[in-house]
Design a protein around this nucleic acid. Sequence first.
DNA 1: CCTCGATGATTGACGTATTCAAGTAACGAG
DNA 2: CTCGTTACTTGAATACGTCAATCATCGAGG
Lengths: 144, 144
Amino acid sequence: MKYLGGVSSTSSLSEARDLSRQLLRVAERARTDFAGLAAESGLTPVQARAVLWLEQPSTMSGLAEHLACDASNITGLADRLTDAGLVERVTGADRRVKFLQLTGRGTLLRTGLASRVARGSTVTAKLNPTERRQLATLLDKLLA
Amino acid sequence: MKYLGGVSSTSSLSEARDLSRQLLRVAERARTDFAGLAAESGLTPVQARAVLWLEQPSTMSGLAEHLACDASNITGLADRLTDAGLVERVTGADRRVKFLQLTGRGTLLRTGLASRVARGSTVTAKLNPTERRQLATLLDKLLA
DNA sequence: CCTCGATGATTGACGTATTCAAGTAACGAG
DNA sequence: CTCGTTACTTGAATACGTCAATCATCGAGG
């Protein structure tokens, strides 16, 4: 027995480091899984995020904010989604703003994608209900 | 009182969906935080991951595997890191393989970056030790 | 009205990441 | 020594990402 209490106390720093790494690994895993799901729909991850976000029509700047990127990105992104027949630009009352709106195909694709994301690939499978609740609570605190 | 038991049972599906979303949000947050830390060192996220990985010298294909990308990426990545004076290519006994090795500057930069990552930006701050242990356990299961 | 600043989207220049296919160099077994 | 394999490089194509500049429109103050 070698000072177990001491060990647990001095290891708090490395525990913190490990936790960060773990979280980054999980994030990387989530990213990869998501990219895979997106690819099944023929989308890049960013395109998939855009489509998921467009449950309700959104202005281009609104989408830019959601994606946390420069507004000038959205032009090209919207172009590509439009070319793919998934969204269309709809001019609003203020003729400066353009709403992006899913087409019929876009809506179908979004539904399928959303349900596959909900199924959660890796995640939900590996935890039992109690653990899932615990995780939800902890993630909530992280996002607070 | 309207069948509370029923509610909790039927909500398991939407709970799963919410958990997936939450995890994606946390992943997104982790990604953003990491990108910020990388940028403080003048690196892109991928470059930062590479530098962190190079605590020990690694072959280019080894790095490709770690980054889960095509080997042809690494050439350009290594070029840019070399231009930045952070790594150098070292030819091994087998003259086909090239090891990437941090320079002095690279090592310094890696140390700083690693400690900032360890500090965990958002993460560690918001949880108490008990919660951190819980989270570590759950993340372990996710990664299993 | 009418001008003028602010706002929303677009464009163009540029850099990074990514993949795939093709090429080059070196190794090693037969 | 030859030939298949391995490790890296190259080149073409696409997506993202930023920033700066442009264009059209709106709305408010003369």
